[in-house]
Amino acid sequence: MPTALVTGVAGFIGSNLADALLDRGYNVRGIDNFATGREQNLKGLHDAANFSFHEMDVRDADTMADVSTGVDYVFHQAADSSVPRSIDDPVTTSDVNCTGTATVIDTARKADVDTVVVASSAAVYGSTEQFPKVESMPEQPESPYALSKYYTEKLALQASDLYDIDTAALRYFNIFGPRQDPNGDYAAVIPKFISLMLDGERPVIYGDGEQSRDFTFIEDAVQANIRAAEGDATGEAFNVGTGGRITVNELVDALNDHLGTDLDPVYDDPRPGDVRHSHADISKAREHLDYEPTVDFATGLGRTIPYYS
């Protein structure tokens, strides 16, 4: 029975990933410092006999060394993952994401971990007009967050050349689903809009609403992580998306349909650092990870809304 370490396990993606690994028969160790993770995401995990939780920070090398001992796979999900917050506070974002990743990888290779899978982001591509985004394109990070994710993945991929460890970086494209935090100024668009519209409030769109996103259901992000860890590919970055795109205006229309509401959005000035279009080419992940999206956008929304209502 393999042992997995999930960093950021109290977060949206980390907690869903831990659930799936437990279902797969793994022993799972989870760590989180609750800077953005939520205790409520751990409720089901605490009931599992083969799950252990450690409240700690990934930047603490000594405790990272302790929890990495005897681990087969590391899934590094811990991050400060907001573009606007990174612009307001680039120091914290850079410290958490860059120093944290370096510490995770260094302790993993010293502990003879087999594979480290790190969470990167479609934000590394920037606002180039070319889409869909292909992994061979030059990266153009336009925010401290995007720059920190560029560093995260480059550090991980370099480790596969320097050390006896397999690595993969997953460039997430707008992952959504149950457990995503709907609160605060930095909340992701889907949970924030659902929460507002359930309360009868009009959602705020920054820009004209014609910006598009490759909204990807959490189940497919989890699938990609497991395939990357258990497969043979190493030293590579992969897009994790659906290969489609939805405008933010279309998102509001879809939510009105699902919720039975008729709420027009409020439009505000575009936010600095936000990319115009995000659309993944997933052919590389299909070829090397046998990755295939299984949940379309409409189905994903239908499975997400009940969590917030």
Rank of each mutant, 00 (worst) to 15 (best):
G241N: 07
Y151T: 15
D161L: 12
E236F: 06
K192Q: 14
E153C: 11
V118G: 09
D166T: 01
M137E: 10
V118A: 00
D214Y: 04
E201A: 15
V116S: 00
E142N: 12
Y172P: 01
A228R: 02
F131S: 14
A159D: 03
Q140N: 15
S212N: 08
V204C: 10
S120F: 03
T234E: 08
F193S: 07
I175N: 06
L198G: 14
E230C: 10
N225H: 14
T152K: 05
S120T: 08
G241D: 00
M137K: 04
M197N: 08
P191Q: 07
Y145E: 07
G241E: 02
A188N: 14
S212K: 13
F238R: 01
Q130M: 12
V240F: 04
E210R: 12
K154M: 11
G244W: 13
D185T: 15
A229Q: 02
A119P: 09
A122L: 11
A237T: 02
D181E: 14
V113C: 09
Y163C: 03
N225I: 06
P191R: 04
T167L: 06
D164V: 06
Q180E: 15
D114S: 05
A221M: 02
E210L: 10
V116P: 05
E201W: 11
S212F: 02
L170P: 01
D166L: 05
D232S: 11
A159F: 06
G207L: 08
E135Y: 01
D199F: 14
E135K: 03
D161F: 13
D112M: 14
A156H: 06
D112V: 11
P132S: 09
D161H: 15
P178M: 10
V124S: 02
V134M: 13
Y145K: 04
G235E: 02
T234C: 11
A146F: 02
Y150M: 11
E135C: 08
A228V: 05
K149P: 09
N183L: 14
A237F: 00
F173Q: 00
P203D: 02
P144H: 00
T216I: 09
S160K: 04
V204M: 12
T115S: 09
Y150F: 14
V222P: 00
Y150R: 13
G126V: 00
E135V: 11
V113K: 05
T107L: 08
E129Q: 13
G200Y: 08
Y186G: 07
D214N: 07
T115I: 09
N183C: 13
P191A: 09
N183V: 13
Y186S: 04
V116R: 01
M197G: 09
R202K: 15
V240S: 03
A159V: 08
S121F: 01
E219T: 15
A237N: 00
D232H: 09
M197K: 04
I205F: 12
Y151V: 15
P191M: 06
G209L: 12
K154Q: 12
S195Q: 12
A169G: 06
T128F: 07
D220Q: 10
T167Y: 06
Q158H: 11
T152F: 08
